[in-house]
Amino acid sequence: MIDLRGKSAHADRAFRWVAVGAAALVLLVLGLIAVVMTDKARPVLAEMGLDFFTSTRWSAPDVLYGALPFIWGTLYTAAIALAIAVPVSLGVALFVTQIAPRWLKKPLVYMIDLVAVVPSVVFGLWGVLVLSQHFGLGRSFLTAGIILAVMITPIITSLAREVIETTPASEKEAALALGATRWEMIGATVLPHSKGGLVGAVMLGLGRALGETIAAALVIGSALGQITTNPFAPGNSMPAVIANEWGEADDMHKSALIALAVTLFIITIVVNLIATSIVQRSMRRSRGKV
């Protein structure tokens, strides 16, 4: 007698639902972040209106919260960081993929990945006690930019490496067979081939630089109301302000800091989404699946 009816279907279904629940948790947490944060940011936005984003005065005693200097500081330090990190990362990625002998490749990649493991607070500590004191940089936009550059370089490098390595060897050999020098080969095949992915890698680095809190909070100088292009001037950034001021903030002040966090959240998410979509598209294309 053959009975082919299922016996363990319940356990199977239960396991599936547990997995679905775990996956749905991502949606739940993100949804909660959005709802809770915007809710708590409402008081200051009701008080300040759009001035929150355009005013340059930030003064808790006067209940004035203009976030523009911090938005500026965030963007400016990130720009400095990118200006340093992008050429360096690209150089490192090209060196590792095109020039480095095989034996050097692995240790080099390990070393660079190690930079990504150093806690940001340790970079901050080094920045505030070594870099800013012994190199005469003080606490400034530039110091923060340098520290952020060091921190995002491994991120950009490792992605750039992945993208560059998708260049077909046949294309590179074709260029070399036509008598191109190594640099001409890179310019003719590697760079055009990985352009999209490289842009995405840079954007991901940017996303990280915008959200980095602790290192910036330690070395940026915590100046109020500075909108300047002078890289040696002390400034402030959104995450640094939140970290430094939260402890002694009253309710409205806290609401203002949360509003800063929401602003930061939106900017970084937009940047990250653009980055991921660029990276994914270029990876797909380079694998031949358009």
Binding site: I33, G207, G211, T213, L257, I258, A261, I269
Partner: peptide, 14 residues
């Protein structure tokens, strides 16, 4: 992917 990009300070506040 979106959640990976959320700045750590935002998680702290949340």
């Amino acid at each position: 992917t979106v959640m990976t990009g959320v700045p750590s300070i935002v998680m702290g506040l949340f």
